[in-house]
Design a binder for these strands. Structure first.
Lengths: 159, 159
DNA sequence: TATTGTTATACTCTATAACTATA
DNA sequence: TATAGTTATAGAGTATAACAATA
């Protein structure tokens, strides 16, 4: 995502000649479409969040910590399907910006409980609005039934 | 992807307690599911391609160059929706491994035509088999109608 | 002037391995 | 022994900006 400049995407639109050619076999590969769709959403997210300077993953972390204050990094790892090292790094970044804090848990002093700091709560409120904008852009091409269908299908991939 | 070790994913399976809790609001965010699904597919792809040491993107490039020998880097950029700099880097990596070569086009000497080298053709043949394995893992959870539906929906995202 | 491609730079994500500390 | 988290390291992807060559 690369803390996200407020610019037009550098990816030029596909000329008609290219589009007509198609991509042959590759168009039958589900994983290929998933990757392209993810990339398109990733780029739009980056544009939408250029002012807030937050990535998809960072927003997800703030969001979850807000909804379950005190959750451990390990639980967070599971929810967002990333390993411990990645989680540490992302939490580091948010903590360095004063958006959340770590506190050792009373019951099990190996674990770190995560809580939003006031700045994190404020940023998250703005992020939720930006997510709505972004999601509107994304969902506007579908009926609500199609959105439900798509989410259900994607859930069967990520479990 | 990180040239991909032949190991179990470091992402532990979610304990039942976490799963039961769910993710609240976040579960209504389409982009969130897209990101998780992409991540899951990305990881399985990495496992499947650990021996071949190829990423999704690298396979896509070999695949397209094979299907349209002589295509330019710019056309490749459009097909895979990435900018010129990223394209240069990925082509560099494949060229360094002797899988493809660049040649200036006769008609327009600004452009570079891409062609597979024999090693590239051999690697791609093995990659196509691995893609079949990977796609079977991915598609086995869906009916063929659902696969078609999912591809159609994803296409409306990436255009 | 516009397009094609390269290079330098930089940041995020991802992951492994080795480590500390706690249980 | 097993779990929680950190640190060091590394590679891939993404993107911007400045640049050279060609059109």
């Amino acid at each position: 995502m690369g803390i996200t400049r407020n610019k037009q995407s550098a990816i030029a639109s596909t000329p008609a000649t290219d589009a007509r050619a198609g991509r042959g076999d590759l168009d039958a590969v589900l994983g290929f479409h998933l990757r392209l769709a993810h990339g398109a959403v990733y780029r739009h997210f980056a544009e939408t969040f250029s002012e807030l300077e937050l990535t998809q993953k960072q927003v997800s972390v703030l969001w979850l910590v807000s909804d379950w204050p005190g959750l451990s990094q390990t639980t967070l790892s599971h929810q967002l399907q990333m390993d411990r090292a990645t989680t540490t790094e992302i939490v580091n970044r948010l903590a360095a910006r004063g958006l959340l804090r770590r506190a050792t848990m009373a019951g099990d002093r190996r674990k770190l409980a995560l809580h939003l700091l006031p700045a994190g709560t404020r940023v998250l409120a703005r992020a939720r609005k930006a997510v709505r904008t972004h999601e509107t852009w994304l969902k506007d091409r579908f009926s609500s039934a199609e959105v439900e269908m798509l989410i259900a299908l994607l859930e069967r991939i990520h479990g």
